[in-house]
Design a binder for these strands. Structure first.
Lengths: 210, 210, 210, 210
DNA sequence: AATGAATGAGCCTTCATTCAT
DNA sequence: AATGAATGAAGGCTCATTCAT
């Protein structure tokens, strides 16, 4: 009735959006830990809840179903991957950028985690259309980002002008995924493989070998 | 007195190893169909049994455990992959061989199946040591096979002598996996990607572009 | 500001320990009913759940495993047996106490239940160490209790001072179990057997026959 | 047509009854081993078959159902128990006979086995009428046998004439079972308990203590 | 917002039993 | 007679999810 009411009333307790975001992330972190260890379908909500330090029912206040949780996590992963590619563009040269990205990936402690999840995500993309959509959009953006970087390098004279940026970008990403997926099965250290792959790429791009 | 007596005497029904092999394959086929659609852990034994047209209990007379079934199927898949690489070696030239293999893969109706399973297997390798072992041994053999082919091509003068066969083989396989894993997420047709990738490879190997 | 704030803050629904105890007992009762009819290993959790009017999954929120449920029930039974012996001590004389106990056992409607379960428990003790431990500790306490009663009777001059209380107590318990186990197989009524057994005991203890 | 045929023809292969008896015993032995370790209901036919060194299907040519197998084994056990009591009668005096029986039981390596099975049988008697019948008939015979022995001892003047042989026999058997069932739970060695029990019995029978 | 409590459906595996050889 | 092969039914246990507090 009083005019104040029309302004202040939030139709119930005002939502603390910040706290919600924190909790949400907490759950996503727990989920990631589980998914890395067991995969999407062998990870139970109960395990995720324990890992996240949260009650099972609480998870359902942030994600409607387990599938939604998976999709949300995939979105986060995609964003992550995009960030790595952005890193390349921030270097002073393509060479340094590529090198930095590779080195960073291979050197990071959580690489195992990232790669495991990436495979999980790709496999899930084959059956879960919602996941496929998210990943595909991420792929587009990532390719665009990398293509832009390649174009800049062409302008710099760092790489050949004959190559088609978008297509090469796609190949680079594929090679990268294929390489990392070798982590648990490669008969020789991934580091060596990565080095060789970089040579192949440089040769293709018209850069001098390392 | 009769010569038959010297032959091993069977008490009871003799084992029909051939029938067993058929049944086993039947189960593996059902399992593959399920694993492709749902993945390892979301496929239940009941579903596999139905798909294979077999009773649940019967599966356990051929595989001690669901995990054993998975490993057996992974073994079959690995053997499959090796066969494809062998195909390359049988062509009259490396170029034709590579081309044939790519074309065959991309053109085959079951490609979707093969790739989906490949991702599933790679993801599983991260957590299941038994699977990892099988896949790693397959990888070694496949690399060796491909390296041998490359060496022959070097002798033929078809490709550069500077490249190291084993390492290049590993990179080729990685690239191939990475490429195929794009099937459901690539913003443009896989065919184009594959073409570009072949260019990259040929450039690396010192072959004339297509 | 309010004094209630000092009390421990509950996030979420507080545990209702009382309701939990009720539910737990409800499950144990259902389990007892099943175990009596079918024995431990022929009783399924599903049957117990139905008998208790509870869902299967709910049972697992109170007992981690079927074995844990068995152990819990054995503990309850052991406590029951101890209560019966305590009854003897509460009588004004050993004679009346023993008589009361026997009469009560033989006259009770659930005797069948108690005895069946007792045999089940003894048999299980041979293979299940957890059960054996529980039963053994119960046996010790029961013997001690009964020995104490015998000692009091010795002080009263009601029984001979030559007998060793603990050992006689053990024999009495053994005889009691052996007697009751005859319930379904004795060619003559248990009542007569019990009477004869009491005579034997009284003779041993130096009491006048009934 | 020929007269010989009428004599020699067995309407199919003549049954080798002796071989059948051997096989049957072989199966029963395997069953006993399993039942002792796991109990009736936790022992599977497959386990029994393996323990007996026989195929699963073969068991069903000797026993129609698992229940029949149990009953057959119970019959054998009952016969066994009767044999032990007969042993008492063969001694030169009751004292020696009882002593010999007790000593033999307690000293035998397989006592554990016998007792475990005895408990299993008694427990099963509560629910399985077929078993109950077998055991009850065995009990009758055993009591009769022991009563006969007691009567002889009365004639010898070895024990009191006031006791009623049949009833005392029943009590002795009950005491014996109750005693042995203490094997896994008695806080003190069974040997001591047995000694004490013998004192009780002797006192009842009017014999001099040991 | 957050947790305790509860459940139907489902999972992997084993069981007792039958049939063909 | 004896064994291999097969199966419907069940068994113990867990899952994703909902509801009450």
């Amino acid at each position: 009735m009083s005019p104040k009411r029309d302004v202040k009333k939030h139709l119930g307790r005002p939502r603390d959006d910040e706290a919600r975001a924190v909790r949400r992330q907490q759950i996503l972190d727990g989920a990631r830990a589980c998914f890395v260890q067991k995969g999407f379908h062998a990870s139970s909500i109960a395990m995720i809840a324990e890992e996240a330090g949260v009650s099972v029912a609480n998870i359902y206040q942030y994600f409607e179903t387990k599938d939604d949780l998976i999709v949300a996590l995939v979105e986060a992963e995609v964003e992550n991957d995009l960030a790595i590619v952005r890193l390349i563009g921030e270097a002073s040269s393509l060479r340094e950028g590529l090198d930095a990205a590779m080195v960073r990936l291979i050197g990071m402690a959580k690489m195992h985690t990232v790669v495991q999840l990436r495979l999980e995500v790709l496999a899930e993309s084959f059956r879960n259309p919602a996941v496929a959509t998210v990943v595909q959009q991420g792929e587009e953006r990532t390719i665009a980002q990398l293509a832009q970087i390649l174009r800049a390098a062409q302008a710099n004279g760092e790489i050949r002008t004959e190559i088609k940026p978008a297509q090469s970008a796609a190949v680079i990403l594929a090679l990268s995924d294929g390489l990392l997926s070798r982590l648990p099965i490669s008969p020789r250290p991934i580091r060596e493989l990565a080095h060789e792959a970089v040579q192949v790429l440089f040769s293709h791009l018209g850069m001098k070998p390392v």
